[in-house]
């Protein structure tokens, strides 16, 4: 019994030796295939983007040209616009991204209308990880509304209806409820007005001039109306058409609210209140 393990081991060794190739005695050969030199292309940094402000919405529009990848005509497959608070360094905020499909417009808008100077850069991408970023373009959006004045009715007037109408005639010409000016370096897009009356006697509910008569204001106040405008040097003259003798008649406080917007939708609102007693 004590010999059994040795016998088993010898048998196993013999079996193993019998199965294994005589590799120590086998011939060998080796062939090596070499490829030559592989090189990789690189991404060109995109050109500095152009940054403008969109008329109407006032959003900041960033546009750029396609960025080359390698030397064989490939271009970036996608782009991201980054906004920085400084010309160098700083942590970017991703504004938008564009996939460069054929015919795609390489531009996007930053609708946040941030104040102060911002710095925009375009980051081009190719594949999953390759990227190259342009230099930054500084841009300060126009966030200032037009300068607006009210010639008549002159704010703070207290007096008779007749004197008020004469002042309107002198300042605005016949058949005007009010007039003034609006000016903006970028241009004034529109002027709108609201005329309200708060009677000092009887029913003192707030009333709105609807173009024909004063009506009690609704829950949301009075709807604004477009003023007539005409271009003058440096801006517009605005005018509220109407028969003054029909409007400025009852006692109370008349308030003209004028809102002018520039081409980038920046508003300026002024009011002029007069009291007829």
């Amino acid at each position: 019994m004590t010999r059994a393990p040795h016998v088993v081991a010898l048998v196993a060794l013999a079996v193993w030796l019998g199965q294994v190739d005589g590799t120590s005695a086998a011939f060998t050969d080796r062939a090596v295939v070499t490829s030559g030199t592989h090189t990789s292309g690189s991404m060109a940094a995109p050109a500095v983007p152009t940054v403008t402000q969109v008329r109407g919405s006032g959003a900041t529009r960033v546009a750029w040209t396609a960025s080359a990848v390698g030397d064989h005509g490939a271009t970036a497959t996608s782009y991201e616009v980054q906004r920085y608070d400084a010309a160098t360094g700083a942590t970017p905020t991703a504004v938008c991204s564009v996939t460069a499909d054929p015919g795609a417009t390489l531009a996007c808008e930053d609708g946040t209308r941030p104040s102060g100077t911002r710095h925009y850069a375009v980051r081009a991408r190719f594949g999953a990880s390759w990227r190259a970023e342009s230099s930054r373009r500084a841009f300060a959006a126009d966030l200032t509304g037009p300068d607006v004045t009210v010639t008549q009715p002159e704010n703070g007037y207290r007096g008779s209806a007749a004197d008020l109408r004469r002042a309107l005639d002198r300042g605005c010409g016949a058949d005007a409820l009010g007039c003034g000016s609006a000016a903006d370096p970028a241009g004034v897009e529109a002027v709108r007005w609201v005329l309200e009356l708060r009677p000092s006697a009887g029913n003192r509910a707030l009333r709105c001039w609807d173009g024909a008569s004063f009506v009690v204001a609704g829950a949301s106040g009075c709807a604004d109306r477009a003023a007539a405008t005409s271009a003058v040097s440096g801006g517009l003259r605005w005018r509220i058409p109407g028969a003054a003798n029909e409007v400025y008649r009852d006692r109370g406080t008349y308030t003209v609210t004028v809102t002018a917007r520039d081409v980038f939708a920046n508003p300026t609102t002024v009011t002029s209140a007069v009291t007829v007693n």
Binding site: T23, A26, F27, T28, D29, R30, A31, V32, V33, T34, S35, G36, T37, H38, T39, S40
Partner: peptide, 10 residues
């Protein structure tokens, strides 16, 4: 950059 293919025969 290069690629080398080694074929070992026995």
């Amino acid at each position: 950059g290069s690629v080398s293919l080694r074929l070992d025969a026995m």
